[in-house]
Each structure stands twice: as C-alpha cells, then as structure tokens.
Design a protein around this nucleic acid. Structure first.
Lengths: 113, 113
DNA sequence: ACTTTATATAATATATTAGTTATATAAAGA
DNA sequence: TCTTTATATAACTAATATATTATATAAAGT
C-alpha cells in the first residue's frame, strides 16, 4: 500500500533530527520510558516527551502503559514506507541512467563514415 | 564512509516536504532549471529557488550553469546515506528481534515438568 | 488521605520554515 | 547600450519547531 504524502512528510521530518534518530536506535534495542531515555541525553524531560510525540505522529513508535510508565517501542511500517520511497526514487534514477546509456549507444551507432 | 549527523539531518529534512520529493522525482528523469520546475507546481519562482537551496544544502542535487539557466541535477550520494541509516536501523531492530526469539525459545526449554 | 514516581502540558523565548511580492543580478541577444 | 530571460535575494507574514522552567495529572505505594 502507498504511504500518503503527509505520512512521508511526518516520517522524514521525524528522522531529520539527530536526537530523534538516536532515540529510535535506542528503542530498536528494546522499549524504554521517558525517564530512561532522558538519562541518555542532555535535554530536559519535557523535551524528550516532545520528541516522542513527533516520532509518534510519524507512527515510528507506539506508546503503551505499564503502571505510571508509558514505554515507547518501535513500529516498523513507517520506516519501511520511507525506505520504499527512497527505493522508488532510485529506480527512477536508474531507469533514466539506462535511457542515457541507450541514447549514447544510439548516437555512436549513428556515426557512419 | 559514515555520513555525519548534520548531513543526515539535512537530507531527511529536505525529504520531509512533498514538493521537494516531487522535484527530486522530476530531476531523476533529467536535469531541469527553476522555470521548468515552476510550471509543474502552483508556487512562485522564488519558492522553487528556496526549495532547490534546501535540496542543495543536503547535497541531494547540484547546480550547474548553462547560459542564464542554472540546471539542477540529482546527486546520488546523499540519498544513499539516508538509505544506509535506515538499513542500519533495521539491522538493529532485526538483531533485537532475534534476541527476543532466542529468549523465548530459552524460556520454553526451561519449562520442565 | 498523602507522597512518590513518571509523564504531560502550559507558558514563554528564540529560531527556522514556507510562502508571498518586489527588486536585484547575470548572461545573451537585438 | 537597452532589452529580454533566467534566477537570486530582500522584506515581510504566518506558522511551526525546539528548548526552557513551572505546574498539572495519573498511577502506585505508604
């Protein structure tokens, strides 16, 4: 299924911040709550919460409930959508490259003496 | 070679706008100048120029010179860096998934009657 | 009920983005 | 040189992002 433009906007935007990418890498190793994440970064707890909100908006993570904790964990679909767009783009590029090759080959053929 | 955090920030940010992604798709099919791009979008010429600047900052495109025209064309390295980060992330995730599998398998083994 | 723990939200300041219109610049052409 | 063509930059507005500190809420523990 095709990801919408808005969805891709949100995913790429969420990935455009180094802190958020690092949070994702941490979460790829296992779920974590806001406080556990806070210890890995030199920013305030509210700042972490806001980063998580942006990751959640992009559906790169989901939140669950464990007593007072609200552990975040990775959701795989969104990043797969980002990857798909990149691959689609690279295929366009490759197709163009092949047309260029064909064109050049054609031109060489036309060089009759 | 590893892309820096700043570089990845710029690349993912550039990709976080649907207009810019569409511009890239257009450029994948062949270089184009500002005016040619303008015709495909309902935004002003200065708006296109600014989008190109953001794509250029991310090194997703390069500009060249052809008389008054400054054609933009795709540069492949930056998007490959973005793809690499995603793949690296997915590998982390897979590794964790496999550890989980191993853990669960171990637990089942420990269920002795 | 009161306290602790974990997280969210409000209020605020600053920076950046994205668009607009108007104007400047750079290269070519008459 | 004057004009046209292509693009860039300036000035401006409105919206959004990122951080902070202070405060509110939600769930558990005493």
């Amino acid at each position: 299924m095709q990801a919408t433009a808005d969805r891709l906007d949100a995913v790429f935007f969420a990935l455009s911040d180094s802190t958020r990418r690092t949070i994702l890498e941490r979460l790829a190793r296992g779920e974590a709550g806001v406080n556990e994440l806070k210890d890995s970064f030199s920013i305030s707890q509210p700042a972490i919460s806001r980063h998580l909100k942006i990751l959640e908006r992009a559906q790169l993570i989901r939140r669950s409930r464990d007593a007072q904790r609200r552990p975040a964990s990775v959701e795989t679909q969104a990043i797969a959508d980002a990857e798909s767009w990149i691959e689609h783009f690279q295929q366009l590029w490759e197709a163009n490259y092949q047309r260029l090759d064909a064109l050049l080959a054609g031109e060489l053929q036309n060089r009759k003496p």
